[in-house]
Simulated assay, not measured.
Amino acid sequence: MATFIRGSDFTADKAWGAQLIANMNGITTRLHWTDKPCKWHINDGEEIFVVLDGTVEMKYRQEGEELIAMMQPGDIFFATIGTEHVAHPQGEARVLVVETEGSV
């Protein structure tokens, strides 16, 4: 069965609310809507974070240094295992997240 999702129309009841798109052998792909920052965290595995709509300030720590990247639609952030990071949307944002099922 095929599914079509218009990401620009997706909203959620709360910040970081998500729609599960697929679970492929324990790797999930979810569409998130948010208008509030996440919290600093380290995922259990690798993570791909793609901005679909809006602007997101991605803060991450690498070798003890805090770095910041302003992400626009189409930008991709890849967090390896152990990368501490936090996303701060600038207003509303929609992001696609690919990560291990049950990851933080």
Rank of each mutant, 00 (worst) to 15 (best):
T3M: 12
R6I: 07
S8W: 07
D9L: 08
F10Q: 03
T11Y: 06
A12P: 11
A12E: 12
W16D: 07
W16T: 06
G17K: 03
A18R: 10
L20Y: 07
I21K: 00
I21R: 01
A22R: 07
A22V: 09
M24C: 11
N25K: 11
G26M: 05
I27K: 06
T28K: 00
T29V: 13
L31V: 02
H32W: 05
H32F: 15
T34F: 11
D35G: 02
K36Q: 15
K36T: 14
C38M: 10
C38D: 15
C38H: 14
K39L: 11
K39S: 12
W40A: 03
H41V: 05
N43P: 00
D44F: 04
G45H: 05
I48R: 02
I48S: 09
V50D: 09
L52A: 13
L52P: 08
G54E: 09
V56C: 04
V56F: 02
V56D: 06
E57A: 09
K59S: 14
K59A: 13
K59M: 14
Y60E: 03
R61C: 12
Q62E: 15
Q62M: 12
E63D: 15
E66H: 07
A69C: 04
Q72P: 00
P73L: 07
D75I: 10
F77R: 02
F78R: 12
A79D: 06
A79W: 08
A79C: 10
A79M: 06
T80W: 00
G82T: 11
T83V: 15
E84V: 05
E84R: 08
A87S: 06
A87E: 01
A87D: 00
H88W: 12
H88A: 03
P89K: 00
Q90P: 01
Q90D: 11
Q90T: 09
E92D: 15
R94A: 04
L96F: 09
V97G: 04
V98Y: 01
V98N: 05
T100G: 09
T100R: 14
E101G: 03
E101V: 03
G102P: 10
S103R: 06
S103N: 14
V104H: 12
V104T: 15
V104S: 14
